[in-house]
Design a binder for these strands. Structure first.
Lengths: 215, 215
DNA sequence: GTCTATATATAGATAGAC
DNA sequence: GTCTATCTATATATAGAC
């Protein structure tokens, strides 16, 4: 096996795919190293442990996505004072799709990994993201709050977590959903189509009247 | 150990709690049987395997909830022709809260189990529910479609899955969210409060204009 | 129906040769 | 930096005595 990418990247590439498909705890290091065609011991050599491998997989995306997302948001907010919420969400689509340039299926993989991570990791991932990317997180929350100033902070906390749930769950099961949509409605979707479909839903949800009045 | 509930129920009670807290694959049969104070081998005797135990845990709730939910929906639809979407969702709150009568913390446990199940089980649970409770599922989808006839079937498919994601993710991480809300906003919530909070969000999302126009 | 003991499988991690 | 071999831990599942 002569010319090939370095072992560390081979592990990351194989791992992210398997993690996204099967979840973290359902993916063994043996499966990863066999798909990556590297030695089992190399995971420990390069990453130290499975937990650190998981963090490395996520960091490879977050390090690219988070600054780009913040940059886009900053540019948008510089252009106007009063930004509709839907534009806040929409402006994140580009940084997300850029991840497809970083790696094949990068957008889908990233979102699916995030979704699984938030649910599976019993708070570890939430902590990891807040610790390492807290400023970007905060910048996003501020931007959303500014476009919906009528919503109290505490209520916004809940709605943004509902939104997180909507997007994470949708992405974690995106493959299954696209399959069903193809079979039942003869509809071909890719990840971008799904993202664009979910934005109006999330926007309406965040801006919902909380008085329990039906529209 | 003289008078006590039967072993089968003790296993189910311990299992559902641990499954809801930690997820299915992170919960070993050893942990379950030790909390239940029964012998390890009894799981296999009573349920056959871990997988069947998981199904039994869910079925104990679904068997109660699904018929009650359908009954409530039927009563509602009999009372009027034109039912606002929010009422469709709201009418499910009662059957959900009834589960607290079935078992302590039943509502929270059920929803958290469902949430984890949908995400962890790689489609097994989706299949299990469709196979065993398909008529109730269909009745719900029909009722929703009838209250929002302007939304095409394919679009409704997506929006209901967004909704599923919203509620499942929220419930799977409900404990963490209630903790954060208490710490950051000095807000005490229980599961009912969270359910009532999420309904306006889901209602607005399902009814959202899909034209990408901000409200 | 419940127990002990154990079979069997699979996981993550590491020592030490190369 | 990569390999083989193995340690150690923990999992599910089951055989067989009671």
């Amino acid at each position: 096996m002569a010319s090939r990418i370095d072992t560390k990247s081979r592990i990351l590439d194989a791992a992210e795919k398997l993690f996204a498909e099967r979840g973290f705890s359902e993916t063994s290091l043996r499966l990863i190293t066999s798909k990556a065609e590297v030695n089992l011991a190399s995971v420990n050599y390069h990453f130290g442990s499975k937990k650190e491998l998981i963090r490395a997989v996520l960091a490879r995306y977050l390090d690219v996505f988070m600054p780009q997302a913040t940059d886009e948001l900053k540019a948008l907010r510089a252009s106007s004072d009063n930004i509709p919420l839907q534009q806040i969400f929409s402006v994140l689509v580009n940084p997300l799709l850029q991840l497809n340039r970083l790696r094949p299926e990068g957008t889908a993989l990233f979102l699916q990994l995030l979704g699984r991570g938030y649910i599976e990791s019993q708070g570890h991932l939430r902590w990891f993201i807040t610790t390492h990317y807290g400023e970007h997180q905060q910048y996003f929350v501020d931007a959303v709050s500014a476009s919906a100033p009528e919503i109290p902070k505490a209520e916004m906390f809940w709605r943004l977590h509902f939104t997180l749930g909507t997007i994470m769950f949708t992405m974690a099961s995106a493959d299954a959903l696209m399959e069903i949509a193809a079979a039942d409605f003869n509809e071909q979707n890719d990840i971008e189509a799904v993202i664009r479909r979910v934005i109006p839903y999330m926007t309406a949800g965040v801006k919902a009247s909380s008085l329990g009045v039906d529209k």
